[in-house]
Nucleic acid binder design. Sequence first.
DNA 1: CATTCCGCCTGGGTGC
DNA 2: TGCACCCAGGCGGAAT
Length: 277
Amino acid sequence: MPELPEVQTTVDDLLNLGIIGRAVKRVTVAWPAVTGSISGQNLTSLLRTKKFAHIRRRGKYILFQFDNGRQSLLHLRMSGRLKFVPLHTPVDKHEHLRILLDNDMELRLHDPRKFGRFTADETVKAKLARLGIDPLSKAFTRRALAELLLNRRRQLKPLLLDQSVIAGLGNICADESLWLAGLHPQRLSASLKGEEINGLRSGILRFLKSSIARGGTSLGNGEQNFVSVSSKAGGNQTRLNVYGRAGRPCRRCRQLIQRIVVAQRGTYYCPRCQRKR
DNA sequence: CATTCCGCCTGGGTGC
DNA sequence: TGCACCCAGGCGGAAT
Ligand SMILES: [Zn+2]
């Protein structure tokens, strides 16, 4: 579930927990697929005594940088979230990766669907290199977005979800941004006019800033619902205009919101405000 | 180059 | 209660 705002919220939380400057004591892997079958012992020998120097968001990845220069990446995928608890806290059945620090606090990946991934090897650089522009960076100008759109002939929504084009946007952000901009999710990227491109950029930024300011979007109360490291649910769900609102009236024109499938993802839009043309 | 389908997993919701 | 079915915030690989 986590998209850019939820990952950013998670990183912001991590930076308030006193992890920076602490060393790794042990890594425990409870579900091998999380690490691509790299054992906890291997990861422990790689990271033991190394201190956390930086924690940053890169697209939807959380990047951990250690004081020896080693980098590792954590991706929360669909249902991952982090917990930070004392060493002897009973291990939940959904906690598949645990990183013990030298203050006996443990960072745990809680991930019911087991899609989350952690890597600390040489593939990190390649993964980072594949990421497109960060939508919150200064480089994400109207001109930069125009170039990304006009040089491709793709449907808008799959393009927005392509992490090698723009890094961090997810299914909710794509639908909400397209509604804000009044653009059909299947419009061809190369067909956009200047003003439409500017509107799309504004929509993306407006959604991201709103969601981050509210601690992300938390859609329910289940195991797979997003909460930050401090166990707080986000508040952006009440601001959604189309996502999950099929059959309900558009807040702008009262036309009923429709759900279609685009690029194998549920896609919500207003047939009146967002014409294919 | 773009699109489509599948696999990876568990859990929540709905309808019978 | 039970069961069948559909859906889910992501992504990588294969086929077309
Ligand atoms: Zn509308």
